[in-house]
Design a protein around this nucleic acid. Structure first.
Lengths: 213, 213
DNA sequence: GTCCAACATGGACATAGAGTCCAGTCGTGG
DNA sequence: CCACGACTGGACTCTATGTCCATGTTGGAC
């Protein structure tokens, strides 16, 4: 696919952005027609040319719509947080040609920020980060962002997907809240029984990440 | 006061620290005997030699006590946040000679940290300020600070006092957490029954009494 | 298409935690 | 000494939490 004329057209921009943003930014060119990846610079996820794009939600073909999206947040499987920006690049006729995505890994920045703001700071300060009260929205948000990550609606999540979501929710200690289980079950579109089954599996093998069948 | 022999003794250290920590650190030498300032390097507040020290709380004269305090947080009048460390410097005989305070202005660090972590970040982020998991310490903290406010130990709190504390805990939605009630009861040194009694009274007339928050 | 295994589901069940109630106790003030 | 209000332990009820199982459902192999 490297000989795609659109790649030749846009690759200088992509190389420039990838070079400017250093080793922590991934640049991806998508083909909105086939919904597949055309090319990747600085790959961070293991995706490559030809893989599905999974960005069905941005309606790139509407010439009257906005052409820059984001920045919005993505979560990688290993927990890294990304800031993503997407741009619809058009050909001379105004039709959508390709979609450019820049994914910036924010973890190094955040680590640096943590170092800075921890410098010389009191060891036990933490004065008033009040209690979490809208945990129910939080649940929706965790589920929602996972859905956006893998591009499938809640109903079509696989068992492994649900396990991953549950891992995040448990990490966030959502289940320490009273009456949390029914809410989570409803958010995952799963019965209470299934929820407990998944939770049991999760707690039995907390670090068994891959469930090969 | 510049000719005080103690200033001559310690001033190299102070100059070194002031030079190392750049323009944002103030170094102050106090005389614990007169409770006045001996000398200041990089003054940030408008205090100078001879002004009162205002650090009565650290018991510098106890040779068996600790000799380094902090870092703890101070607030300047203009809102800048400082991290302060104090050290009791002793003479050859082990008696307290001077008290050294280093005040580091954290605002530039925090601004830098904010810049870093805002770089390329989503505009409406609120990503993962995870759930509160040490809510049990939080309970202790609420109770503790109330006790300090009114100067009575936990056991001698009046009924109204306990109602006030409970109001704060309910405000913080502590009771939305599983198994919170026994913890609160223990922290308030009250039986489970009494706790529920107080809670009932509180919920029946939430605004009946005004307690400073 | 059938068969099979893995999974999801609802409901029955068991248990723990959340609240309520009350009779007895304690300390204080009259 | 008594009356009173508040605290207590414990019995009790009810709801939420988890577990278990018999029964559907799905999706892939053949």
């Amino acid at each position: 696919m490297d000989d795609d004329p659109r790649v030749r057209t846009w690759s200088p921009v992509c190389r420039a952005v990838a070079a400017l943003l250093g080793p922590y930014a991934e640049v991806v060119l998508h083909d909105p027609a086939t919904d597949r990846i055309l090319a990747v610079w600085n790959p961070m996820s293991s995706r490559g040319p030809g893989d599905p794009s999974l960005l069905g939600e941005l309606d790139a073909l509407d010439p009257s719509g906005p052409d820059v999206f984001g920045p919005y947040e993505k979560l990688l499987a290993d927990g890294r947080r990304l800031s993503s920006v997407s741009a619809v690049l058009r050909d001379a006729g105004g039709g959508a040609s390709v979609v450019l995505c820049v994914n910036l890994d924010r973890t190094p920045l955040e680590q640096a920020a943590a170092v800075l703001s921890a410098f010389g700071a009191p060891v036990v300060p933490r004065p008033e980060p009040l209690f979490e009260h809208d945990w129910t929205e939080r649940v929706q948000h965790v589920v929602g962002s996972y859905v956006r990550e893998c591009g499938r609606p809640v109903e079509r999540l696989t068992r492994a997907d649900r396990l991953a979501v549950l891992a995040r929710l448990e990490e966030a200690e959502v289940f320490a809240v009273r009456r949390a289980t029914p809410v989570v079950a409803r958010a995952l579109r799963v019965s209470r029984s299934t929820l407990y089954g998944l939770l049991a599996e999760l707690r039995a093998a907390p670090n068994a990440k891959d469930h090969a069948r």
